[in-house]
Design a protein around this nucleic acid. Structure first.
Lengths: 344, 344
DNA sequence: AGGTGGGGTGGTAACGGTTACAGTTTTGTA
DNA sequence: TACAAAACTGTAACCGTTACCACCCCACCT
């Protein structure tokens, strides 16, 4: 509990000036005699001196911290994303302040306020879709924003890293169509999010291209939180002419939806084909193993950190970039050709 | 990209001194006339002024940041723990700097170094078990340490929040024994971690109490990373006289172990009963739904944050506390009475 | 009327590290 | 030996905020 030693303590102990210690600390900022350097290093070690980030930050206006604002770490997708972001950031000597918005715009706004106070140089976030003015204010303050997974269209000057949501949904739909399904349902996230909109658009596009009419009752845009996935499934299965295939494009609701399917008497894939976004540790462990759209989380994280840190360090000055990575379609056993019986 | 406004800008604009602005900012630190306060607040709003945490931190030696050093966010247990910690911390106005040690002592040491630099007031961590000297140094520096989930025995002065690992393992083993199993295998984490040691101890205790001999071949203490869970399962099943029940006490290896069981021809629970640590979103979705030891993650997070923040704010001065919470035993369908056939 | 107390406000020295600039020593060469 | 250049060191101001103390003014009391 003793007082922490400062750079001045080190200087005194080592019998040099603070300038020398500083130069030892920040290698390359000035000449230091090898012998002196050794003595200083030894003293630093002995005193357990550690420069205080706050003081450094205050002086040189820059920071080695980025903010990460994700929806919800209980969702494995975001958890793994966070894992990779923290990892990639560390490799670049950057710390990550983590905040979650729990899909709540109010909490999101609060998070942004606190991040301004922490004067982070960059923020990587999955925006709720609201708070456009708050984001805009951050931009004018010179904070670099990287949206990952989702985006906000009205916001220029923001880097975006995401998968091709429309193409992914289209591919999943085409796979269903290719198996002979025509009564296909799509469960997406809220249409206030870009992922929700884009995936539904991709779904429609594939259906139209195949000349299959879209039953509007088959499209459910539901919240990320709560048990809405299960409710959507129940609603779909209760229909007089229920779908023979369901695509769950709402990552957070996959579990809820799947649980409800299992509770029903419907057999997968015999009576119902299922495709879900996104690949989880457990999608191949359930019965049957799920056909999924797998997001390349490593790539999403890597690009996000590269943009965030690149702009932080001033290495990147070009206008905002939109990076699209392709998702993989992984076929397992939850999809099957339309059975003659169900095909009526 | 314009210059950020400082407290002096606000003071000048509002026609008051910086001291007054500071008092408005930190309510309760001194008298301010209502009218003046209103003018200052308005100016702050208009200028979009946000006090810089770095300057504040430098001045008052204290900080509103805690460090969270978890093993690995790809593990749902830690991910959900992080989610709750971030949530509970926010409710107390505290930010969380997240770092992962990936079960690597070297990375852990590095994390601790950087946290000293960020002068966090408290650290919540799942220690690898190494770096005892580093932890000790942090303690002498006055940093409050809270170990969650695991602990290090040699380290006094550290708060610990964990489940009763020995009792949990004992209960799980008793359940197996109660079903008639005697050839029970236990897969734990490394014995360098307290969780590994305690769970194995609980297992042994239950076995001894039941008068059943422990086959040392049936105990596998394996690393958290890699595919060692699967390998342990394979090794167990390849034994001339394989176990009829397996308890997986290594949270990180549950998936790997389960996948290997599914790949084999062994039927669960008919030919093999299975209990795993810990409850996941997916444990009830696999076939059969898994019997699990469920850790009360909310409680672990809440107590950890309470200790970390309490000591940070000086509200808590009593000696280090060891908080034990009880885990729930959740019986599902992966355990069954020993079948007469297998019982030989 | 002259104190007195306290609400309201202003000035300023820290906090700890960086850095420009000035100062000092060492080295090299004629 | 002298002198210049190179190599190194010391000092002090600065970053933005808060804590502390000094000050003013006015209401209230005696």
């Amino acid at each position: 509990m003793r007082k922490r030693s400062t750079i001045r303590d080190v200087a005194r102990e080592a019998g040099v000036s603070v300038a020398v210690v500083s130069r030892v600390l920040n290698d390359g900022t000035g000449p230091v005699a090898p012998q002196t350097r050794a003595r200083v290093v030894e003293t630093i070690e002995r005193l357990g001196f550690q420069p205080r980030a706050a003081a450094r930050e205050l002086q040189q206006q820059s920071t080695t911290t980025i903010g990460l604002v994700l929806a919800d770490l209980a969702n494995p997708f975001f958890a793994r994303l966070a894992d990779r972001v923290v990892w990639d950031a560390r490799a670049r000597g950057i710390h990550v302040v983590l905040l979650t918005n729990q899909e709540d715009p109010h909490l999101e706004a609060e998070s942004l306020e606190t991040l301004v106070g922490r004067s982070v140089g960059s923020i990587i976030a999955t925006p709720t879709g609201e708070n456009v003015d708050k984001w805009r204010r951050l931009i004018t303050l010179g904070v670099n924003i990287v949206f990952v997974d989702r985006e906000i269209d009205e916001l220029p000057g923001v880097d975006v890293v995401a998968i091709n949501n429309d193409l992914s949904a289209e591919a999943a739909t085409q796979h269903m169509l290719g198996l002979g399904h025509e009564r296909i349902a799509f469960i997406s996230g809220p249409l206030s999010t870009s992922t929700g909109r884009d995936r539904v658009a991709g779904f429609r596009k594939a259906m139209v291209a195949a000349g299959v009419e879209v039953d509007e009752q088959f499209i459910h845009a539901i919240p990320f939180r709560g048990d809405s996935g299960g409710d959507a499934v129940s609603a779909l299965l209760a229909l007089p002419n229920p779908p023979t295939g369901i695509i769950v494009g709402n990552t957070a609701q996959v579990r809820s939806a799947l649980r409800r399917v299992k509770q029903s008497a419907i057999a997968v894939p015999d009576d119902l084909s299922l495709i879900v976004f996104d690949d989880n540790p457990w999608t191949e462990l359930v019965s049957p193993p799920l056909t999924v759209v797998r997001q390349p989380i490593d790539m999403l994280a890597l690009h996000s950190v590269e943009l965030a840190v690149g702009r932080l360090k001033g290495a990147l000055t070009e206008p905002a970039r939109h990076i699209r990575v392709n998702a993989d379609f992984v076929q397992r056993s939850s999809t099957a050709p339309l059975s003659p019986v169900t095909a009526d």
